[in-house]
């Protein structure tokens, strides 16, 4: 029976195991990042949608002007929220910020002005 040196010494086997563990950890980290990014993006788009709905209450007759102003707010707000939501790791403050922004927008839309 042919025995490889790998099995004989056991050193490369350990190294391969270590590499596999490292690879698995890396894959898990990437999956976690993708999940967080998807969640943050969903929250941010919901917030942006609610902000756009709020523009209907702006005191301008021109509907297009209202949505244009909403667009200006969204173009500034959405990337900042995505970045904060993704970057804020400690105590998940970024995600909390996104949730807070979304809740604030939802409350403002739901409550009568």
């Amino acid at each position: 029976m042919r025995m490889s040196r790998t099995i004989e010494t056991g050193l490369a086997g350990a190294s391969s195991l270590h590499a596999n563990t490292k690879k698995r950890q890396k894959q898990q980290a990437v999956l976690r990042r993708c999940g967080l990014l998807a969640l943050v993006c969903a929250l941010c788009f919901l917030t942006a949608h609610l902000v756009m709905l709020l523009t209907r209450h702006l005191p301008f007759e021109d509907v297009r002007l209202r949505t244009d102003l909403g667009g200006m707010v969204i173009a500034a707000l959405l990337p900042c929220l995505v970045l904060a939501g993704f970057a804020g790791l400690r105590y998940r403050w970024g995600l909390m910020l996104c949730l807070g922004a979304c809740a604030a927008a939802a409350l403002t839309t739901a409550l009568p002005l």
Binding site: F45, H49, M52, T67, D68, I74, A75
Partner: peptide, 18 residues
């Protein structure tokens, strides 16, 4: 990037309820 996005943002996120 900002102005281009702001100009057409209403097309991506319309002011109509989903």
């Amino acid at each position: 990037g900002y102005t281009g996005t702001a100009i057409h943002a209403r097309l991506l996120i319309p002011a109509q309820s989903f």
